[in-house]
Simulated scan of single mutants.
Amino acid sequence: MTADPQNLPFDYDAELRRYHQRLLTAMDVGPDDNVLDIGCGTGLTTREAARRAVSGSAVGVDISAGMVATARRLSEQDGLRNVHFEQADAQVHPFPAERFSLGISRFGTMFFTDPDAAFTNIARALRPGARLVQLVWQDSRHQEWATVIRHALGDGRTPPVPAVGNAFSLANPADAERLLTAAGFIDIQVTDVREPVYYGSDAEAAFNAIRSLGMTQDLRTDVDPAQTEHAHQRLLDTLAAHHTADGVWFDSRAWVITAQRR
């Protein structure tokens, strides 16, 4: 492995390409919508929303300055004039009250350290009757990618998972419904979605992509070099077993959660 994962940021747009199409259908952006994209990353969903909201607009927010900079550059390249990006924490950012007719998020709402405050803040930014459409992961036991990485790099160990601020914090629909109801949302619907996720064109590309993920650093602490080498080989072998003519894919499951601002 010669590539340095620190210089190869994980490509979430490629990983989630199948889920992206599911979200586009669910969010159903209208020509007059003003859209808020929460945890927009490099802005793919924001740009798609802006293209559909031809008489409206789209605003993407993300806590990562690097991702926001990339999102701005890509929107400029696309010539989009009705899109705007802000580096902001949606949990506390002072959005204009009742500004947006639609809120969307592609796996961006699970990481709030205070989800009650976050969804209340998002609700304030949405107009009465506005929709909120979000994709969130189901429980980790339904995520083949998480199981494979943990088994290969963690020697079967399961690190402690915080109750909030992790990828699976909204995996329980009852928890999501409680949060949304308390924040002022009604007509909450949860839909099971199952799509494979993409990790690279071949085993080596997938290996380097996985090494760039923060969770892999947590799984490989306090392990000697020989054990690390064995773990890397286990992971490479598993990735090779998942290699298809279309790249390396893993099974996964998510929820599409929709709600309406009261």
Rank of each mutant, 00 (worst) to 15 (best):
L8Q: 13
R18I: 01
Q21S: 13
L24W: 00
M27Q: 07
D28F: 08
V29M: 03
V29T: 07
G30S: 12
D32N: 14
D37T: 06
G39V: 00
G43R: 01
G43S: 08
L44I: 12
T45Y: 00
E48N: 07
V54Q: 14
V59R: 03
V59S: 05
I63S: 11
A65E: 15
A65W: 08
V68M: 03
A69Y: 08
T70S: 14
A71S: 11
A71L: 08
G79Q: 12
G79C: 12
R81D: 15
H84C: 12
Q87L: 04
V92D: 15
F95A: 05
F95R: 05
F95D: 04
P96T: 09
A97P: 08
E98K: 11
R99T: 10
F100E: 00
F112V: 06
A117G: 11
I122P: 00
A123K: 01
R124H: 13
R124M: 09
R124F: 06
P128W: 10
G129L: 11
L135P: 00
L135H: 02
D139N: 11
H142P: 02
H142D: 14
E144Y: 06
T147K: 12
L153H: 01
L153A: 03
T158N: 15
V164C: 09
S169F: 04
N172Y: 08
L179H: 04
L180F: 09
A182L: 13
A183H: 01
G184V: 08
I186N: 14
I186Y: 06
D192Y: 14
D202R: 08
A206M: 10
A206Q: 04
N208W: 00
I210V: 12
I210L: 13
S212H: 06
Q217N: 13
D218F: 12
R220G: 05
T221I: 14
D222I: 03
V223L: 14
V223N: 05
E229G: 07
A241N: 11
H243Y: 04
H243I: 00
T244F: 07
T244G: 11
D246P: 03
I257K: 02
R261F: 07
